[in-house]
Write a protein that binds this DNA or RNA. Structure first.
Lengths: 339, 339
DNA sequence: TATGTTAGCACAAAGGATTGTGCAAACGGG
DNA sequence: CCCGTTTGCACAATCCTTTGTGCTAACATA
């Protein structure tokens, strides 16, 4: 190509050495006592030639790529689709690029993707881990890679994380159901070993127990955050005797699947079954009935996650103990029936 | 770091030169007549040491980064949120990484992002351009960067693209409305200069004219694909006299905004106003009423786009004339009233 | 034996920026 | 006038891989 303007060419034209050009362009002119005259000459020429330093070469030398990795289990899930752009936007403003990986909720894809990102020498990683394994992440942290967990975390591992108060969300939702007179409350869960799922189930269980309602393990059904899982498990639950009068869906997609199943069983929400979704979406208000849901502050989650990461990228290794559980909010709409 | 295993170290340990190691690891052993013995030694050692070649150094030399750029106006829009993971997934399988940029529908952000991607030496670009300018893209193509447009394109510019049949979608929808007896049909448009918007408006207009209904410019309202725009413009339209009896919303988010506005005006869908959304979403079926919409095959759009790009990355510059308009489908549900 | 092949690999440049070290000139103080 | 300090910058190594060129030794051919 002919876009091959390099440091060296500028150096030759100005009649100085590469190092001088490099220092000027990196704003280190003062630090290295480059004369104002030389500095101006270089800056002017660089502008004229439209010089763009080759980041590959710079990274090769500095071991910094100004790139972060963003690893998400399912970008098409509105929850994550809401988070991704805020992280990307903040990164752009901070001068970082984002390498995106979608793991499809598969541990192997996650491991591969993370390895790929690492060999590309990302400076930091924001990840909503699948959650089945953490060894690959620990290994990277040992090697000095700043990592921030988002949405999901590992309770016993010292990663910085930002998530929402999943326990509380589920607890509040179930308590509300109980207040409305429900006793037969089933839980449609997502991926069992993920922290949000575990805490939501724990909240569900605690609320039942605090109300003196026996916990029934069979009524924690399902194994994935996707729509099909909600559909499938609800079809089964709706044939149970006694039939649950209320459902807590542990993701917005699960709730969608549950609604589809309920309709196909020719039952009505909330007349026959009440439903609460974890993770509110704006369009829930237009559902028939408007769907009661637990809202997570996902904008803020993204914001905080990138803030944490940028902080680690700056102060390198001040051993922060960054951890955040953002409050959630039960949005009462029309999908819960008073018994 | 101690992860600093390099080609050279392996070369030293084996007692050969760097080049030999490089060639072996790149599968060029045969081509350069490396002895089977040497080859095995190198491969074995590389495996043992868990050697990972530094892609920065390789890219610096080869001018290939095995990275593509993906530039999207609004990742949080379910339409794009659906496309992104399929592109990312295909890239992963093909050995490419994806640098993601969200332009927030702003030309300046797009220009900056594309420039950034270029200086990072991406091998190819998939972009749903904001559409206001194309010069920066043309410039890159001159420089040899393979570019594929998705969703939006430039009718007069020779970029490969894959989009859907926007004209037909709008035409069919409006024709359906007319068949249902509607005459006062307004159009809530998105970003005016984008190709999908223009073609949808054209389809809207053509359907009206083919039915002998006069086209009213004031009833093509709005300027953005987001929810707020649909809300705002609908509030205004609902006060118009005569009030439109049907609305064609040119994005799923606009439709959401329209619904919110209609509700706040204490009107009913479809009793007072009928509504059709461009771009179907699974959750539309649960709306009150279930929302009639024009479905786009976004999975296939993503698939084809990455297929086109990979083809260009392989055959470098066979001058393909790749262009694809995928068929759309009107999904009739309950948001249109028979008059 | 002299020459031609071929196998097998080494050498060094290239790719482009960064940075630690050090040198020469200018300047200031005594 | 001499020595010490500061100014202003050059040099060359470094980061790591890829690749064009070409050398040496072994073997074959005549």
């Amino acid at each position: 190509m002919n876009d091959a303007i390099t440091l060296r060419k500028i150096a030759e034209m100005v009649g100085c050495s590469d190092s001088t050009v490099s220092r000027v362009l990196n704003g280190k002119a003062r630090q290295y006592r480059i004369s104002a005259e030389t500095e101006q000459q270089i800056l002017k020429l660089a502008k004229e030639l439209n010089f763009v330093p080759n980041p590959l070469a710079a990274s090769l030398r500095t071991h910094r790529t100004l790139t972060i990795g963003l690893v998400i289990p399912d970008v098409s899930n509105p929850f994550f689709a809401g988070i991704v752009p805020v992280i990307q936007g903040q990164c752009r403003k901070a001068g970082y690029s984002v390498l995106l990986a979608n793991t499809e909720e598969k541990t192997r894809v996650e491991v591969d993707s993370v390895a790929m990102l690492h060999k590309r020498q990302i400076d930091g990683l924001i990840i909503a881990p699948v959650g089945e394994r953490f060894d690959h992440l620990l290994e990277l942290r040992e090697k000095g890679l700043p990592i921030v967990l988002i949405d999901r975390y590992a309770p016993d591992l010292p990663f910085p994380y930002v998530t929402s108060d999943n326990f509380r969300g589920a607890y509040d939702a179930v308590t509300y159901l109980i207040e409305c007179g429900h006793v037969h409350i089933a839980c449609l869960q997502g991926v069992p070993y993920t922290s949000p799922n575990q805490e939501r189930v724990a909240g569900y269980r605690q609320a039942l127990e605090d109300a003196g309602i026996p916990f029934n393990e069979d009524w924690v059904a399902g194994d994935s955050f996707i729509e099909e899982n909600g559909y499938y498990e609800t079809r089964i639950l709706m044939k149970d005797v006694p039939r649950p009068t209320a459902l807590l869906a542990l993701s917005n997609l699960i709730a969608l699947g549950a609604m589809r199943a309920v309709h196909e069983e020719h039952l009505r929400i909330p007349a026959d079954v009440s439903l609460i979704a974890f993770d509110d979406q704006p369009f829930f208000q237009f559902f028939q009935p408007p769907l009661t849901a637990i809202a997570q502050p996902y904008q803020e989650m993204g914001q905080k996650a990138i803030e944490y990461l940028l902080r680690e990228l700056k102060d390198s290794h001040e051993p922060h103990k960054l951890a955040l559980k953002l409050p959630v909010k039960l949005i009462r709409r029309g999908s819960v029936k008073m018994l």
